[in-house]
């Protein structure tokens, strides 16, 4: 195992975050905080609670998950796309590193940033909305698992993308709508039976539901199913990454 290589890639990626602190951390924290102010404190105070949880508190897990998903994808996809774009990928490809070590470095850094961001948003939310966490260890587990899974997904997008437009395509046109429609702002039980069934095809529902369960002990689908679905998505991403390195897809001629 080339530990030095993993550490080098990880540090390199983390140092990029610190160089772009405003863009990497401050900007998503402020934009998510605005949701807490508008939907949580301002509008939420005039709305009925859902499943015994105040509306402001109800949307906290969903909004954290929204940031977690989009940032995990952005961080990891940009991390591997940029060396491809500027040509420095030659160094990674010619180094004595395995696929696992490359992925561990890039995905590890992206997931670290996302988890840190999620925790900062969690603390910031507490300034605007009162909430509690019933299962803090499960909350952390979901946070880390989701960050790793979607960082892997982002890594795949970064390999696939051959221009900046494609890099933004999946997070903006697929992940964000799925997160909004996946129960960030409402319980899927509030939908008609037909749309409830349709919504169950949205994988983000399971992520948000499981994460919300760790906060309040209530969920749209069972926590076990949520965990299982997240693990399935993780395994799919791992399989795709394995295939990418085996075939050299968009990495090696």
């Amino acid at each position: 195992m080339n530990i030095y290589a993993i550490r080098s890639i990880y540090r390199f990626e983390m140092s990029r975050t610190f160089r772009t602190l405003l863009q990497s951390i401050v900007s998503p924290v402020i934009s998510t905080s605005l949701y807490f102010v508008v939907f949580g404190a301002a509008i939420g105070s005039h709305m009925n609670g859902i499943d015994g949880v105040s509306y402001g508190a109800f949307i906290v897990p969903g909004l954290i998950m929204l940031s977690l998903l989009t940032q995990s994808i952005s961080n990891a996809s940009f991390g591997i796309y940029f060396p491809k774009f500027v040509g420095t990928i030659y160094e990674i490809l010619s180094a004595p590193v395995s696929a696992f070590e490359i992925v561990a470095g890039y995905v590890g850094a992206a997931a670290t940033k996302s988890v840190a961001l999620g925790l900062i948003i969690l603390v910031t939310a507490r300034l605007f909305v009162a909430f509690h966490i019933e299962h803090p260890l499960w909350m952390l587990a979901f946070l880390v698992l989701t960050a790793v899974t979607f960082s892997l997904f982002g890594f795949i997008i970064g390999i696939w993308a051959d221009n900046f437009e494609k890099l933004q395509l999946v997070p903006l046109l697929i992940v964000t709508p799925l997160t909004f429609l996946g129960g960030s702002f409402y319980s899927i039980h509030m939908l008609s039976p037909f749309w409830q069934k349709v919504t169950l095809f949205n994988p983000v529902v399971y992520l948000i539901s499981g994460f919300r369960w760790s906060f309040y002990g209530v969920s749209d689908v069972s926590m076990t199913i949520s965990l299982g679905m997240t693990l399935v998505f993780l395994l799919i991403c791992l399989a795709v990454v394995w295939w990418i390195f085996r075939s050299g897809y968009r990495l090696k001629a």
Binding site: I9, A95, P96
Partner: peptide, 11 residues
Amino acid sequence: NTVSFSRGLFG
């Protein structure tokens, strides 16, 4: 940093 990065990358 970039030279140190390369050294680490090569183990």
